[in-house]
Design a protein around this nucleic acid. Structure first.
Length: 865
RNA sequence: GCGGGCGUGGCGGAAUGGUAGACGCAACAGACUUAAAAUCUGUCGAUUGAAAGAUCGUGCCGGUUCGAGUCCGGCCGCCCGCACCA
């Protein structure tokens, strides 16, 4: 019996699809009468080669794309390259190859790999973000944002990555370390470009509720990251005229609990607050404190270990509700300059930090919130602050109110006194987009000594990166380039300097999905009509690691673009459906001297392993995400050469639910290989003269009818599994159907016809998953054209209605037997049959039947005692 | 500390409140073979039993229900995110 040979079949079918241009989307205006469906996987950074781990993401998107295509949608499923970034510069430094060449070589290699995976992609829309034809438009978008005040330049304390030699956005600092380099980030005061993402903080938070096809987890993470808090700004008048003259008459604080204002016993300012710096000039104690805090680590551990500390600044403020009540002003190490106003009022009874601080420095602790069930006369706060709701006490005009009412009352009082108002604070900061690197999109700005910051006129775009650069020094090559930055001011014509910072590569990925809708557009970043037709992306597939970074930036970008004349999208949300897939993991191996070893370098035995080259024992490490750094990757081309693209696709979808990790094992791959061969065997064992794959075996009975029922049940189940992103369940059901076919190879009335119909359904069911084998089967079964052009099979609902039922029978909730009854049999008869069933009757011996529950078509439960 | 998720065979995992363990992997036994690989057939939660069967079993304790892996309450454990955010 001949075996299926993917090495021959796969290129053949890939060529057939390419020849027919099968996966080209719509066309301008998409006047083909079909509904649109935009499916997109997060586009790759061209780092070198694709491994089996990467392929899972693309395979899942491809299943959806092929399935939707079969269901009659006009599917847009494009691919491109997130091609700017630091690894290209590192390669240039280490190997002397130009970043552009390195990037394009990688793209060529990876494109070939994706094509050999048989993805249903519209390659006519491919682009790389490092192409001037792409970043030209990004520069134009930057200028649009500049016009709209959505981009600005300011001097700020920013995160500096000393290894990558560039600044990073807040989102790109994880536990105090750079997201790429892992280096401890240091704070530096620098002049940088920012996108005004905070202008959309409310919208970005509110709209999360509309994203009902996003994972709850991602929505929660974004909401936390934006960190909206509603409360009040309170202005405390300064008693010190000298400070007031310089910094204004009041110290402003943000609070979520204005209802506890009568519990205030001090104010605390961040150690780097301007007033603290001023006082430090003449107060050595404050100066020392300020410097010590500046040296404090910023990692999670450092912060956790650091005890509350502070210093009395020797100035006072007046309580807003009582001008005769003066509060001392301190500086405290737990107050952050980056949040709110960098100042707080301490209300120790209602905040654990304030309480710890007050106890340490012997400041007053006045309870103002009485928890339910406590007595006002005896209630005290010792070492644990009470932060919950209750009744207000010791608070003059707020006494007796509940906390919520008191909060509103306090705000209106502040407003009438003009010493505060209701306000909202956010954790989110503006997006720092400058990078001191070469391989990125140049910022289209010119600095002129006379005119200041001048945007490059739109007709002078693109500002193209120079080719002749060197990487022999760590700093920005654009800054060092002898001529590139020198130009004339577009405004006054005098000599001026170009901006030498480039844009964060996350800017490139914030609008690429728009560019895919009309990559041919030359005068505009994208054709608005095309973008508005295709957007939002119906199904986006990518890694959870972008839960905040890319997914928040892209949501900001579509909104900001909507506020320019470039786009007018209905919702502002770029991605209607999001799926975050799990990783492919693999065992790791380490040699005795600590080198990571790839699976090919290791001979694996039962529970030990040796290095092939040296024969020395190898330490088997943990099961981890496939990554180049740990060398536990399986190269996609090698895999495809051995087992075929279909096997890779089937493997990454099998076993584990798509959102969870799946472990790569050799035995799992062997199982996939066996399945593919078994499937082929049931196809070729159908007689050559059997009916075609679109035939319907209406006359089937007995085993043949049973096979048809299984086929249609599987069809329904697999369809629902695809719709519900449960690919592992679809795989299991297809296994079942193949098993049923293997057992149905005997003859019998109508069996050949039933097998032909079932195989026709099977070929179409497997088409989204293992498309090459599906084509081969379709061809062998005598189907016309290609299986990808065949319609998705229709479920024959008549076959799913059982006429005879097997019902389990329980006695007191325990299964004691089963009965076979006609579907329409009345309940009374079902009861009688159930009671007299042998095993049931045995369990009922000596018991009195109290109740019989018949759930039609489901179960019978007899209650007896 | 706060927020989210998850605990089911040797392993990955299935189960609209209705026969727990589908499907796959591993393991074991057998067939084929000179032999091995490949392939095929069968067994495969625990205890007990010759067998039929019985009892127990979805992290632990309780509750709701005729019936709970699933719903509710309380614990325990693991994973992820955020973390002095006023």
């Amino acid at each position: 019996m001949s075996r299926y040979n993917p090495r021959e079949a796969e290129p053949k079918w890939q060529a057939a699809w390419a020849e027919r241009d099968s996966f080209r989307a719509g066309g301008p205006k998409a006047q083909n009468g079909k509904p649109k469906y935009y499916v997109l996987e997060m586009f790759p950074y061209p780092s070198g080669r694709i491994h089996v781990g990467h392929s899972r993401n693309y395979t899942m998107g491809d299943v959806i794309a092929r399935y939707k295509r079969a269901r009659g949608f006009d599917v847009l499923h494009p691919m491109g390259w997130d091609a700017f970034g630091l690894p290209a510069e590192n390669a240039a430094r280490d190997r002397g190859v130009h970043p552009g060449k390195w990037t394009h070589d990688n793209i060529d290699a990876m494109r070939g790999q994706l094509q050999r995976l048989g993805l249903a992609l519209d390659w006519s829309r491919e682009f790389a973000t490092c192409d001037p034809s792409y970043y030209k438009h990004q520069q134009a978008i930057f200028l649009k944002f500049f016009e709209k005040d959505l981009v600005y330049r300011k001097t700020a304390k920013v995160n500096w990555d000393p290894v990558d030699q560039t600044v990073l956005a807040n989102e790109q600092v994880i536990d105090g370390r750079g997201w790429r380099s892992g280096a401890l980030v240091v704070q530096r005061q620098l002049d940088q470009w920012f996108f005004k993402i905070t202008a959309y903080a409310d919208e970005l938070t509110d709209a999360l509720d509309t994203l009902d096809r996003w994972p709850e987890k991602v929505r929660v993470m974004q909401a936390n990251w934006i960190g909206r808090s509603r409360g009040a700004t309170v202005r405390f008048p300064l008693t010190e005229t000298e400070i007031a003259d310089e910094f204004g008459p009041t110290i402003d604080v943000f609070t979520t609990r204005p209802d506890t204002l009568f519990g205030a016993s001090f104010l605390a300012l961040a150690p780097d607050h301007p007033i603290v710096r001023k006082i430090a000039e003449d107060n050595p104690e404050v100066d020392v404190f300020m410097r010590e805090c500046a040296r404090m680590g910023t990692t999670a551990e450092d912060i956790e270990k650091a005890p509350k500390r502070g210093v009395d600044l020797g100035i006072t403020v007046r309580h807003p509700f009582d001008p005769s009540w003066e509060l001392p002003v301190w500086s405290a190490n737990f107050v952050l300059s980056s949040y709110g106003t960098g100042a707080i009022f301490g209300s120790p009874a209602g905040d654990q930090r304030d309480l710890d601080f007050a106890r340490k420095y012997e400041l007053a602790v006045n309870p103002v919130v009485l928890p339910a069930g406590e007595d006002a006369a005896s209630y005290t706060v010792e070492d644990e602050a009470y932060t919950g709701p209750g009744t207000i006490i010791n608070s003059r005009f707020l006494d007796g109110l509940d906390t919520e009412t008191a909060l509103q009352r306090a705000i209106s009082e502040l407003e009438s006194l003009k010493l505060g108002e209701g306000s909202t604070s956010y954790r989110l900061r503006d997006w720092l987009v400058s990078r001191q690197r070469y391989w990125g999109c140049p910022i289209p700005i010119i600095h002129c000594d006379t005119c200041g910051v001048v945007p490059v006129p739109a007709d002078q775009l693109p500002i193209v990166l120079p080719e002749d650069i060197t990487f022999d020094q760590p700093s920005n090559p654009l800054e060092r380039h002898p001529t590139w930055k020198h130009t004339d001011c577009p405004s006054c014509g005098k000599p001026a300097r170009r901006e030498t910072d480039t844009l964060d590569t996350f800017v490139c990925s914030s609008w690429y999905f728009l560019r895919f809708t009309s990559p041919w557009s030359e005068d505009k970043p994208f054709d608005a009509a095309e973008a508005e037709h295709w957007l939002p992306v119906d199904q986006y597939v990518g890694g959870i690691e972008h839960a905040i970074l890319h997914l928040l930036y892209a949501r900001f970008f579509t909104r900001a673009l909507n506020d320019t004349d470039l786009l007018n999208m209905a919702s502002g949300e770029p991605f209607a459906g999001l799926f975050t897939q799990g990783m492919v993991t693999h065992e790791t191996f380490k040699s005795g001297d600590g080198r990571w070893l790839s699976p090919e370098e290791v001979e694996r035995k039962h529970d030990s392993a040796v290095e092939i080259a040296t024969g020395k024992p190898v330490t088997i490490g943990g099961i981890e995400k496939m990554s180049k750094s740990k060398k536990n990757v399986v190269d996609l081309d090698a895999f495809v050469e051995d087992f075929g693209a279909d096997a890779a696709r089937w493997f990454v979808l099998s076993d584990s639910p798509p959102e969870r990790d799946v472990e790569y094992t050799d035995s799992g791959v062997e199982g996939v290989w066996r399945f593919i061969q078994r499937l082929w065997t049931v196809v070729i064992s159908l007689p050559e003269d059997a009916p075609g794959p679109l035939s319907v075996a209406t006359s089937a009975e007995g085993d043949a009818l049973a096979l048809r029922k299984t086929a249609h049940k599987t069809l329904k189940g697999v369809t629902e599994a695809i719709e519900g992103f449960r690919f592992n369940s679809a795989v299991a059901q297809i296994h079942d159907l193949v098993n049923a076919l293997r057992k149905a190879e005997g003859g019998g009335a109508g069996m050949v016809e039933a097998r032909a119909e079932t195989l026709g359904i099977l070929a179409r069911l497997i088409s989204p998953f293992i498309p090459h084998l599906a084509e081969e089967c379709w061809h062998r079964l005598g189907g016309d054209g290609l299986v990808i052009d065949a319609p998705w099979p229709e479920v024959d609902l008549g076959l799913l209605v059982e006429t005879d039922l097997v019902l389990p029978v329980q006695v007191n909730g325990k299964r004691r037997g089963e009965i076979s009854v006609a579907k329409d049999l009345d309940q009374e008869s079902v009861k009688q049959i159930a009671i007299s069933e042998e095993g049931v009757a045995r369990s009922l011996e000596g018991l009195t039947i109290r109740k019989v529950i018949v759930v039609p078509g489901r179960i019978v439960n007899i209650v007896a005692g």
